[in-house]
Design a protein around this nucleic acid. Sequence first.
DNA 1: TTGTAGGCGTTATCAC
DNA 2: GTGATAACGCCTACAA
Lengths: 369, 369
Amino acid sequence: MPQRSGRIPGKSRPVKSVGRAKLSDVAARAGVSAVTVSRALRKPEMVSDDVRRRIDAAVRELGYVPNYLASALASSRTHIIGVVVPSLTNGVFVEYLKALHDAFLPKGFQVLVLNSRYSQDEEERAIATLIGHHAEAMILAGIDQTDRARKLLEGSGVPVVQTMELAEKPIDINIGMSQRGAGYAATRFLLDLGHRKVAHIAARVDFRARRRMEGYQKAMADAGLDSDGMVIANLMQSSVQRGAELFTEMLAKAPNLEALFCCNDDLALGALFECQRRGIRVPEDLSIIGFNDLDYCASAYPALSSVAIPRYEMARRAAEIVLEIIRGSGSRPKQTRIDLGFEIVARDSTARRTRGSARGPRTTRALAK
Amino acid sequence: MPQRSGRIPGKSRPVKSVGRAKLSDVAARAGVSAVTVSRALRKPEMVSDDVRRRIDAAVRELGYVPNYLASALASSRTHIIGVVVPSLTNGVFVEYLKALHDAFLPKGFQVLVLNSRYSQDEEERAIATLIGHHAEAMILAGIDQTDRARKLLEGSGVPVVQTMELAEKPIDINIGMSQRGAGYAATRFLLDLGHRKVAHIAARVDFRARRRMEGYQKAMADAGLDSDGMVIANLMQSSVQRGAELFTEMLAKAPNLEALFCCNDDLALGALFECQRRGIRVPEDLSIIGFNDLDYCASAYPALSSVAIPRYEMARRAAEIVLEIIRGSGSRPKQTRIDLGFEIVARDSTARRTRGSARGPRTTRALAK
DNA sequence: TTGTAGGCGTTATCAC
DNA sequence: GTGATAACGCCTACAA
């Protein structure tokens, strides 16, 4: 609200409001008091029909829009839900945010979204900002907050929901899944298909991606396989393009690759395109599995296998719990740590390893199975 | 701020603050007045070193976070930029929003994003909400606001930027391009490659998509071609999957299709996958061009031709102009209607029509060119 | 059903 | 350089 009303310094009062109409303006025009207008707007049934009509008319005529700031300050209710995500463009968070919007807006809450850009420091700053805005609840995509951020959150007194992953020591409420377990399962899935030379590529490696990778490494180790030289983890922005690049790089390191576990679907799609470009048949020559199971996985040719994570459901549950707490004025949910699991979605880009499908000289055929 | 301080009804004052620390708490602890604390926080150079140090310590010890609401109310500065987009998941707006975030956050502004879900009514409501929050500027993706929304915006007194498309009568500032012109150009591009049976598929048809389609129709008409039966416009959500579906449907209507102009890249990608699935060679049998030129177009196989629109640049310019107005306290930019154009990006999914590439019986070979 | 009084936490203004 | 005081516009509590 850049332009101010024509306030005169000192003890005098505003001479003429050059800004927006306010409650008292509407009240004057409708011939009632300000409180009555306030009531008519919030609880119309508590006001007589006649008065309500006059007020409605005055509101329309003056183009009155309530000042949310003043309202929030006076009532201690901001109706703002603070949300922090590491990325605004990653398909996973895009859908996650949409789910939050869909859940909160109909209930009269605004969602204030801040981007931490995969940085803990930026996340801490975002959290401080949201606390300053007196968000009524905080929903975080991730469990890796700084100590100061945790203190701020604990001191804020509002419900805090950490999502996307299960935490050892949740700050408050935690709705997630095991990223490490999902990475393990995806790798195990490929191993169970008979593949032995299973590689992993990752970009924009954050905490979650790292744990997925750990799952991969553990699965490999558990199978008695060596994952050295079978991993490329890149810190740069992830993209379809990057998928093609990293896959190409991996191919140089491990030309007799049998299966590829990609840290996310964009990389998987890029790898798939690169295979098409190189005439590598998927899944005959190479099995590919992505992570997240974004929309396009099912439509690709061949349809991409992936690990479906309950991003929509995590957001929905978070919203549900938060609304319950806010409404029930503090009644905590019974369960504060919820595992929503994940699912391996097997499609056409992964297949059982068969003899004679090799696309190059294969030195060993050491399939125990 | 759900939990209130322990205020006692009647004339008594708060007994003990169970909520957050406030300015006066910090002041008391630092042994100065509240105003001084406020000053120390906003203009550190205006207080003595000693006082500043004490205040800093008190702030830290109490975990004080300024109440943004009170500050905004008192100063008439909310540092909030209101943004309305029709979709939170469409790749175009995702990047557009990211650009806005990137431009505003470093300057100390928050971006409050509301989703109109392609509905004018919802957009109107969103605009009212943002005005209620006293956003210092309004950035809208689109030019098709309701009359009431226009009135609200005009009455708000803040800069309003309509983007994504050029408007006949902008509300205030307008940064865009010609959607119709882009649709025309994309079609013209296909026609210039020698194609005659050029079809158009669209999903989630909004005003912009409609104008792109009009461009398509005009280009066809200008070339003396009939576009009847060559268009499928679907109101459902757009997606890669939908692209495959609509393409299949189109194939049934026009089996001897030569080129396909898709309303967006998701549809184009879906159509491409469907071609692969059916053994239709792209571009030999069919040229495909998408719209928006999202990230993955360049990486697809074959790389997808598309129409690049300056979404990032539109957002950047909008932010730049808004910041200038806010800073310069109202100085209007010289230019209030900016055409940022578009670009046809020709890649491998489109090619000149050649003899003998027909994949079915071709009745006519009427290529004027 | 309607009105009065006071306060929400901060900042602008003016005086010291 | 620091402090007292009055807004900012609305809402809660209570009275009528």
